[in-house]
Amino acid sequence: MRDQFLFSPLTVGPYRLSHRVAMAPLTRMRAGRPGDIPRALNVEYYSQRATPGGLIIAEGSPISEAAKGMPATPGIYSSNQVIGWRTVTDAVHAVGGRIFLQLWHVGRISHSSHQPGAALPVAPSAIAAIGNAFTATFERVPFETPRALTTSEISGVIDSYQKAARNALEAGFDGVEIHGANGYLVEQFLQSRTNVRVDAYGGSIANRTRFLLEVTRSVAEVWGTDRVGVRLSPFGIANDSGEVEPLPLYSFAIHELAKLNLAYLHLIEPRASGAGQAEVDRKDAPTASGLFRPIWPGVLIAAGNYTPASANAALSDGWVDAVAFGRLFISNPDLPERIRKGEPLNAYNRATFYGGEAEGYTDYPRLGVAALES
C-alpha cells in the first residue's frame, strides 16, 4: 500500500492526528505592517494547508520586539498580534486541523534596525555571525557584533518566552514549539562557537544546555509538557552555526529534554541545513533522527529534504514518527492529499519565499474538487 505509514494515525500529546504529514515552520515575511500582525492573507495561507487531524507548526514568531530579526515576521508579544493569530487558529480549527506556534528569538541573527531604540542585538557572547542580516527595510547588510546578555538579563529573556507562551494560548494555538535550531538564540547558547561565557550559562555542556532547559520548563508551566515541542538542528550550519563535536552536546541536551515528557522532539536533518536560503542536499551527512532515536522515547518529528517515499521509509524503519515538509508545503497547499493519491507535486518558486503578497504564497494550484472527492 502506497505511503501506508504516512497515513496511519499518531498521538501527539493530547491530540490524535489522522496522518503524519506535518507542515514545518516556514518564515515567509508577510505579516501586516506596522505591528507585524497576522492578517487575512495569512489566514488564507494556513487554512489552505490545514487538514482534518493534520498538524501545522506555524512559522517562527518573535517572542518580543528584541527577539525579532527579519521584517514582516508575525510576532506573539502584542495584543493585536494575539488577535491576528486568533483568526488563523480559528480558520485551521474550522477545518479540523491542529496548529502549534513556534516561539522564536533570533539572538545575534538580527540587526539594530529591528531593535528597540536601534540597539545592538543580544546574544550569549559578543561574537558576530558571518553573513548578511535582513534590515527592517528588506536590505541585506553584514551582521553586527551583538551585545552579550548579562547573567541577570537572561531571566528576563526566559520570562519573555513564558509571556509569549501565554499569548499563544490566548491566541487559540494547540501547543507551542521552542525554536532551538538554525543558529538562533537557543542554539547560540548551546554551541561553543557562539557561547564563550564564564558564568552558569557557559563553559560545560551542562551549563550551555541550561538556557534551553530553563526556557522549556518555563513554557511548560503555561502549557503543560505534553503540549510543548522543541526543534533542534544537531548537525546544522545555518546562520553561521555548527558545533565542532555535536554528538556529546546534543546527546546530553536530548537526554535531559526526554525527562520532561514533551509532546515531541523535532530534528532538522543535516542534509538540509540552510535550505531556506539555497538548494542544499548533503547526501553524505549523518542522519540526526537515526542517531538520536535511541535516546528519545517520545514522538520524534524529522524535517529536511524528505520526499514522500523517503518519509515513508523513515517511518517504516522506526527512525521517526512524523515528517515535517517545508518547501513542498509551500507549493502544494493540499500536500497530504496529493501524496495520498500519488498526484504530481507543484514546483516551488524560491524567488517568492520571503516577502510579498499572494504570489508564491496563496496562489499555488490545488487538486480539483472532483479529484478530492474521488
Rank of each mutant, 00 (worst) to 15 (best):
F292V: 04
A126N: 10
R20A: 05
H19E: 05
G274I: 03
A263V: 03
N132D: 13
L265Q: 08
A24L: 04
V228G: 13
P344T: 10
D281I: 01
F329D: 04
R282A: 08
Q162T: 13
R28Y: 02
P297V: 00
T362K: 05
R16E: 13
R197C: 12
A165F: 15
S289T: 12
L149R: 03
P333Q: 00
I178Y: 13
F134Y: 15
V219H: 13
Y201F: 15
A148V: 08
T73V: 13
W223F: 14
T87C: 11
G96R: 01
Y45K: 00
P297K: 01
V95G: 11
V122Q: 06
A123C: 06
I301F: 15
A322F: 14
A40W: 07
E177R: 01
F138N: 00
A126T: 05
E214G: 12
I63K: 02
R140C: 06
T137P: 07
A302I: 01
G156W: 14
I268S: 14
L257P: 15
A168C: 09
T287L: 07
D159V: 04
P71S: 00
Q162S: 11
V88P: 15
S78H: 08
E59S: 13
E65M: 09
D321G: 10
E245S: 11
P38D: 02
D90A: 09
V196L: 07
S61V: 01
N346R: 05
V198M: 08
I57R: 00
Y161L: 03
W296E: 02
S233Y: 10
N349D: 15
G360A: 04
L257C: 12
G156S: 13
E359C: 00
V141E: 03
L335H: 12
V244H: 14
A91V: 05
G75H: 01
N167D: 06
P308A: 03
Q188L: 06
G242Y: 12
L55R: 01
F5A: 03
Y161K: 00
H19V: 01
S218T: 07
V230T: 11
R108A: 15
E269N: 08
R293M: 09
T73D: 02
G175T: 04
D281T: 04
P344A: 06
P365E: 01
A253P: 15
V222R: 02
P246A: 03
P71R: 00
E359L: 03
V21E: 04
P52Q: 02
V230G: 13
V222M: 06
K259R: 07
Y361I: 01
M29T: 00
A275H: 07
T27M: 05
E343N: 09
P294S: 02
N349K: 10
F329W: 12
V12Y: 04
F189N: 05
E279D: 12
A347I: 06
L328Y: 15
R2W: 14
A263H: 09
I99G: 10
E170S: 14
E373I: 09
P9K: 00
N312S: 09
